[in-house]
Each structure stands twice: as structure tokens, then as C-alpha cells.
Amino acid sequence: MENIVAQIDNNDVYVVIPARNEATVIGDVIAGIKKAGFENIIIIDDGSSDKTLEAAKNAGAMALRHRINRGKGAAVKTGLVAAQIKNAKIVVTMDGDGQHDPNDIQAVIAPIISHQADVVLGTRLFDSKNISVYKVFANKTANILTRLLTGLWVADSQSGFRAFDAKALDVMAHVGDKYEYDSEIIRQIARNRLKYTEVPIRVYYTDYSKGKAHKQGIVNGCKTLCRLVWNIIS
């Protein structure tokens, strides 16, 4: 086990962040990840209309750009492929709005390093006063629907903070393009019998992150559900 741990260091870990119109915060997010000890950062600018790409480059990340917006899932997939090209042994995905704490990366990758899991799901602890009742309710509902559609029960099916090993990376190329990506990941875990575990993570909902227009609302949530069902029956 010690040999396995010794084979992987932070240089083998790539952090993939899908970002759309995050120019004001992406620099701080990248700086935080570097401060936590991870230099390999891939930002996928998913058709932003602001300076997200330039801000990411200036902050020292590898910045790629989708010419047109293709959705969170598509952006993450592009990042995963880029990380594979770079021979990443572990890939961590995080959100680009600064809600995740880079200091949790080490805890999220630990089960993969010790070969206990192929996929690690960061689980938000919904105990902060900053988290609205609506968000907690929406997450519980999404968990139940994910359970019905995938057969797996997870505590936080919609978390964007995850880690994958090389085996899981190959599988995740088949997930959906939009926000249904999060639940599709769970479906792929069940379908391919990947080993997974859940690790608690901290989350910070700022006025900025709560104000993002494209985040999951009721309407987007219904659209996501329709896409999930369609992906199953079509």
C-alpha cells in the first residue's frame, strides 16, 4: 500500500474546472488550488461572454475554450480528455464559482490513492445557515430521482466536487452534456460497477455563487429530469 501511495504525488493529479462567465472569481479559485499544492489545473471556458479564458490563463492554469456553450457535462468531459492526454492518474472536478474549498482536494483523492475507490463523490454537508431550505429540498429530491433512475443511493448526487482514477475516466466519456451530467455520473458508476465512496466536503455559498443565473432552478431542474428520463428510454 505504501508503494502505491508513493507512486502518486500532486503532479499526477489534475484539477478540471468547467467555467462559464466566471471571470471575476476564477483567478482566486485557481490561486486557492495552487496554494493547496496542486499545480495542474485545467479550466474549460464553456463559451463565456466575459474574460474567463484570459483570467484563467493569467492565473497560470491551462485554459481551454469551447467556441459555443455546450453545457457543464460537455465542459467537464473536454477537461477529462485533456487530463487523459496529459497522462493524469487522478482527476478532480470542482465548480468554478469558488463554492468548493481546495483544501478538501487531498481528502477527496485519498481513497483513490489507497485504491479504495475508482470514484470519490464529494458530499456537501447541508448544515450551514447560508444554505437555503430550497437548496436542501432540491438536493434531496434529486437524490431520490437519481436513486430511482440509477439504482444507487448517494448523499449528494449533484455535487460537482469529485475525483476519478484512470479507469473511471474512460467510462465518464459517455455522460450527458448538460446539468444531467451529475446524475449521469452516478448511473455510469452503477452501470460499470465502479468502486465509489463519499467524502464530506465544505461548501461556501456566497452572494456571487447564489446569484449565478444558469444554476439549477426549478425550471432547469425539470429540464434536467426530462433529459435524464429521455436518456434512459431513447
Partner: peptide, 22 residues
């Protein structure tokens, strides 16, 4: 759905091709 997937694949290939670092 097939067209949407094709567009995504095109955009992804275009993105990776245009990036020298990969």
C-alpha cells in the same frame, strides 16, 4: 439529440486541437 451530441463532439475536438498544451 444525435445532432446535439455531434455538435458537442465537434466543439470538444476543436477545443483540444486548438490547444497546444495538450
Amino acid at each position: 439529440e444525435r445532432i446535439e451530441k455531434d455538435i458537442t463532439i465537434l466543439v470538444q475536438k476543436d477545443t483540444l486541437r486548438n490547444d497546444n498544451s495538450t
